[in-house]
Structures are given as structure tokens and as C-alpha cells.
Design a protein around this nucleic acid. Structure first.
Lengths: 225, 225
DNA sequence: CGGAGCATTGAAGCGTTTCAATGTAGGTGG
DNA sequence: CCACCTACATTGAAACGCTTCAATGCTCCG
């Protein structure tokens, strides 16, 4: 009882289930599980059956694609309120990537039957999920553009500009190696690209923080570089 | 009247609207338009308002992302029965790519209000669209893997193996330059990769046709190359 | 203080792109 | 029916950008 209530309160704060009332939530919660995942542990591995999906309550998850020669490429990061794994569930195929916790995390697992039932009753949920998938499709399209059409420096600049900013200060959400992987770069290349921008007086780097004195100056780099 | 009937019969053959009855279809058709697009003409351009989406009745459409220096990268091809443009519609953002006809094509345009209404009534439609988007998300993830983690030869081999085959014969769906763009390669590189496979005795190329004597021999290339 | 993990830097190597020249095929008009 | 033209494909040589490897530096935490 306290378990299901708990799951309900976790999910109520996500965009997906905002319009669910207590009854809806109780039904849904029957087919949910809470999961605690320690930093560096895997939520699922490529090849596992995708008979449900996950919502992040607290923590941070990365989706990683293993390449043929042991390289790994980060595809997406997920934070609180976001869900992941549904694309595999919806097409009834095993996961094609690994999901790994970047921090100690608390997740809610939702079974496919529960979502199927909820979709029948809540057209709004369907629209939310359609919008969510669309948005990620959109992002991935931009990522392909980034990876193939832009130089390392341009990729970095684009990424820096996309980062949430407080005043003139942005912050990497994780280690630079992981950022590099997300951008499809070798860590060494990211490091060199950062140095380049520093030399050009466009940014300052202090650990995980990045100071951007002039956004417009950075944006100019995108056209010219 | 003949117009709406016509649209109905075009849509009935797509996976998306298979379970629509005549009444449903009549309602939907009110907010649809037929479009004829000549080869090389654009269906929409990056930046256009996405207040609907498209279903291919006959023909072939490519989705192309323009890069900063005039390069262009093909993201997806769409053939009869497939739909495109919905991801932009669902997130209420302008198109981020160009859609261009590779052949003379016949399309059906469906307005957002019509789909919104249909989603309320047909949970099954929602599931179909969720599955469609999921599948494309999946494909794009593989494309990113391909583009970043695999060599030109491996990319080509993977693509050849994914092509529909009659006996030992496959066929490029379009010019080699476009295939190259889809694979994220320069046309010259694709040409060299093909020659390489021919030299290794793994394929024969006759114009747009590719003969694959041994699928398994090709697959072995994937692991080793 | 010491160690582990991540970041930086340099030098070398590799794969892909670019450019330009040549080759080939399909379609048109003389 | 042949000659031509345009678009696409091939091939070579050179250059570029990123990766790799390895050594060094830094920083946080036990």
C-alpha cells in the first residue's frame, strides 16, 4: 500500500502522468516497480527483453551504444521526470543499447500492459508520448547533422549554446569524457577544442563550469567555423 | 465527393489507418488534401510551419538536412504507405529538414486537427503512430552508431545486407550519390568501398543492381572489418 | 600523503574528403 | 541512327582533421 502510494507520488510530478487522477494512478501502480540503481550499474543491457519502460525519479541515466570494437557512443542522457526505453517496448524488440546510471538513481519501471491499458483510456497520454518520441527523433536528427556535417569545434560550440545557463555561466552535466562521447569526439579532441575557444577569448573553463562572456560572439563561430 | 472517396481509398492501404471504417475515413478526409509532387520538387522546406503531416501513396520522398556549408545529408527515405513529417507536427515546431521528391509522387496531407480528433477516438491509431516513431528512433540510433563507430566499408556492408533481396540480387533504391549521403560518405568513398568489395569477390555491381553470391561471407566482413 | 580517475598535451598515423580529370550511360535533337 | 549533352560514377593525388598512443599534469578523497 505505502509502496503503491509512493510510486503514484513519484509519477505525478512527471509530464506524462500529470492529468492522471488518484484512481488512474492506483491502477497504473499495480504494474509498476520502484528501482534503486547505484552509480555505474546497468538498468538494462542491449539484448534484454523490453517489456516495459522507465521513468527517472531522481538521478541521471545514460543510453550507450556499444560499437563493434569496444568503443561506446552515448546517445542520450535522461534526468528526473524523463522516461526512456519506450521506443524498444513499442516495437516489441529487445533493447539495442545499454542504460547505465551516472549517479545513484531512483527509477520507476512501468510494464507494457499497464501502459497499453492507460493509452486506451487517456488519449492525452498518447499525445504526450507521441510528443516525447517526436522530440527525441528531432534531437537525434540534429545529432546526426552535428556528427556528420560539423567540425569538432562547431559541434562543441553548438553544444555549449544548448546548455542551460545562469548568467554567463554554463555547466557540463557530467565528465568531459562523456560529453565527448555524446558529441562523437575523442576526449583529447574535446580538450583541444576547448583550448581553442579559450585561446580565442570566447569562453573560460573552470572545472565543470564554462563562462561564456558573449553568447553572440560564440554564435558567430557557428557560421564561420 | 469523388475527391474524399479517393483519399479514403489511398489511406485505407496504409498500416496507420487499417482499422478505420468508412465513417471514420469520411471524417478524416475532410481535413486531407491530395498532392502531386514532381520529381525534384520540394514537399516542404526547413522552417515551414508543420500543421500537418504526409502519407506517401505512390513515389519516393527523401528527408534532407542542410548543413552549414551547403553540404546536405539524407536522413530518411520514405516509400508508399509510409508517413513523414509527424515528428515536427507533434512538437509544434517548424520542419527542421527539407522533404524532396525523388520520383513523381502522390501524397496525402493530413491536418493536425484531424489527427488530434482521430487520436481521441482510436487508441489503436495512437499505438500505430507510437510504434512508427519508435521504429524510426531505433533506426536513427543505429544510423548514429553506423556513422560514428563503423568504417566506410562496414557501413556499406551493413547497408547492403539491409537491402531487400531477390535471390542473390539487391538493388539501390536511388542514385549512388544519394546512398552515399544516407551512409554519411562522400560519393567517391562509396565508389571505392564498392570496388574493394568487388576485388574481394564479395559482390558484383551491374549499374543499380548488386549481386551478393554469399550473404554469410558478407556478414563475416562486418565482424572483421 | 598517496593513489585513482580524469584531463591535457605532443607526435605520429590513418581514413575520409576534396579536387580535378576521365569515363560511362541515358536521353534529345539533328 | 548517330552525335551530342548532361548527370552521374570512377579514379588518382594531395590535404585535412580526427584519433590513437603515451607521457604528464591535475584534483579529489580516502
Amino acid at each position: 500500500m505505502s509502496e503503491t502510494l509512493d510510486i503514484g507520488s513519484l509519477l505525478k510530478h512527471t509530464a506524462l502522468f500529470q492529468d492522471f487522477d488518484t484512481d488512474d494512478m492506483a491502477v497504473l501502480a499495480r504494474d509498476c516497480r520502484q528501482l534503486r540503481i547505484a552509480r555505474h550499474d546497468f538498468v538494462f543491457n542491449r539484448g534484454d527483453r523490453a517489456d516495459g519502460f522507465y521513468v527517472v525519479a531522481v538521478g541521471a541515466i545514460k543510453l550507450v551504444l556499444p560499437g563493434p570494437h569496444g568503443q561506446r557512443k552515448v546517445i542520450e542522457f535522461f534526468g528526473p521526470g524523463q522516461c526512456f526505453g519506450e521506443p524498444f517496448m513499442f516495437i516489441n524488440q529487445p533493447y539495442a543499447a545499454d542504460a547505465q546510471a551516472m549517479e545513484d538513481s531512483l527509477l520507476v519501471w512501468i510494464g507494457k500492459p499497464a501502459i497499453d491499458a492507460a493509452l486506451d483510456v487517456h488519449p492525452h497520454l498518447a499525445r504526450q508520448m507521441l510528443a516525447g518520441l517526436s522530440s527525441r527523433l528531432h534531437t537525434l536528427m540534429r545529432d546526426i547533422e552535428t556528427v556528420k556535417l560539423q567540425s569538432a569545434n562547431a559541434r562543441l560550440v553548438g553544444y555549449l549554446l544548448s546548455l542551460p545557463r545562469k548568467l554567463d555561466r554554463a555547466r557540463f552535466p557530467c565528465s568531459k569524457s562523456l560529453v565527448a562521447s555524446k558529441l562523437g569526439l575523442a576526449p583529447a579532441t574535446l580538450s583541444r577544442a576547448l583550448q581553442q575557444l579559450i585561446r580565442d577569448g570566447l569562453i573560460l573553463v573552470e572545472g565543470r563550469d564554462v563562462v561564456i562572456p558573449s553568447t553572440t560572439a560564440l554564435q558567430r563561430q557557428l557560421q564561420s567555423g
